[in-house]
Simulated scan of single mutants.
Amino acid sequence: MWTALLLAGQRPGIDALAAAFGETRKALVPVAGEAMLSRVARTLLACPEVSRVVVLAQDVEALTATADTSWLASEPRVSFAVSEGGIAVSVAAVAGTATAPWPVLVTTADHPLLTPAMVAEFLAGTGNADVAVAVVERRVVLAAYPANQRTWLKFRGGAWSGANLFALSDARAAAALAMWAGVERDRKSGWRLILKLGPLLLAGAALRVLTLHDAVARVGRRLGLVMRAVALSQAEAAIDVDKPSDHALAQAILSARVQTLA
């Protein structure tokens, strides 16, 4: 059984999306009548592969002080941990502990379109990987939502968007988390980033002589790990809510889901 780490922290300063909806924290922005944090937590608890959910955030009390999220404080399968200085450091601090035993599934509170089917497809595709990341190919997203704008990583054979799902199987994932922390620290320093990921790897990606799956596997080998990119079949897996246009699209998708069920 997997432990789900639900990232609900916030970068310093005012979050533009939260401010647009009169909230102080992005995770509390409502989508289709429910705070994103609450919606994603309910989805994770509905996954048969997930035994518990650990919410990672800087201010836990503020996140459970609303009508939508107060239930989290009394739910026996939900616990909380205080975030550290960055995402990777925060995950590394709790992953593999009594609070969040291996294996660990990581996702984010701004992923209100997440479904148990997406989680099941992702985990089924991780295989023997020490670390896996979920992705969605551009053609899948644009076939369903042609006006949707995302950041695409372009490789040979396709362009990809992340799906905010990561699988960490055991303590060997620590090497990947350490690299992730370094990338977070050095994301504004191009040369340091190149040294971390490897110039040949970055050149291969830039020239599109590598597929995404090849590139991820090579990063894993540099770290002494088995790393895998898992392609998901549902376009909605790539749609997180970072800006008002994302919010409007998520609202429309969730409304359509309700109508379908009705």
Results as ranks from 00 to 15, higher is better:
250 A>R: 00
112 P>R: 01
184 E>K: 02
199 P>S: 03
193 L>W: 07
138 R>M: 13
125 G>T: 08
185 R>M: 14
247 H>S: 09
232 L>I: 03
242 D>C: 09
236 E>I: 05
166 F>I: 15
235 A>T: 03
199 P>G: 02
206 A>W: 06
134 A>N: 04
248 A>Q: 14
181 A>T: 06
218 R>M: 11
139 R>P: 07
159 A>N: 03
138 R>F: 07
223 L>E: 04
220 G>S: 08
183 V>R: 12
224 G>T: 08
216 V>P: 00
162 G>L: 07
114 L>E: 08
126 T>A: 13
116 P>Y: 00
226 V>Q: 11
126 T>G: 05
187 R>C: 13
190 G>I: 14
113 L>Y: 05
173 A>K: 01
215 A>C: 06
130 D>I: 02
130 D>N: 13
116 P>D: 05
202 L>C: 00
238 A>S: 13
122 F>L: 03
208 R>F: 05
114 L>N: 08
169 S>I: 09
222 R>N: 05
135 V>R: 09
189 S>M: 12
177 L>H: 00
242 D>S: 12
145 Y>G: 05
246 D>W: 03
248 A>L: 15
114 L>Q: 08
163 A>N: 10
228 R>Y: 06
152 W>D: 02
175 A>R: 07
244 P>F: 06
188 K>T: 15
246 D>Q: 02
